[in-house]
């Protein structure tokens, strides 16, 4: 349910971006959401589509979401690997638990397409 708050904050930022770039409208918003960000993409899209209607600058904006896979690098053998195991991953080569996260925690706006 935090997705509604996140969508509201996003609309606020999009309004600012539209103002600063003299945009008539925002037509597309590209997001990067990591697998381990804790944001449910369907919930965020649902929330965004509901709250955007209150503001004509963003009411036609579509969301395109790039889901970023969870990638770790092993501190012991330097192997880089992708995994679906969100919380207890280990290295597939040497079984080490000493891992560094490379991607998967992203929760940001990459770019927006505007109509001027």
């Amino acid at each position: 349910m935090h997705e509604v708050s996140i969508a509201l904050g996003m609309i606020h930022e999009l309004e600012r971006i539209a103002r600063e770039n003299n945009a008539k409208k925002i037509t597309n918003v590209k997001l990067k959401i990591g697998k381990m960000s804790g944001i449910v993409v369907d919930s965020l899209t649902f929330a965004f589509d509901a709250v955007k209607l209150e503001n004509p600058v963003v009411s036609d904006a579509a969301l395109s979401v790039e889901e970023v896979p969870l990638v770790y690098e092993c501190n012991d053998c330097s192997k880089t690997f992708e995994t679906d195991n969100l919380y207890f991953p280990s290295c597939p080569v040497c079984a080490s638990y000493k891992l560094k996260i490379i991607s998967g925690e992203e929760q940001h706006i990459e770019n927006v397409e505007i109509e001027v």
């Binding site: 940001h108 706006i109 990459e110 927006v112 505007i114 001027v116």
Partner: peptide, 14 residues
């Protein structure tokens, strides 16, 4: 209309 892409690269929780 003219369309432009603006790089933003900022957190959703900014």
């Amino acid at each position: 209309h003219e369309h432009k892409v603006i790089d933003v690269n900022q957190s959703l929780l900014k």
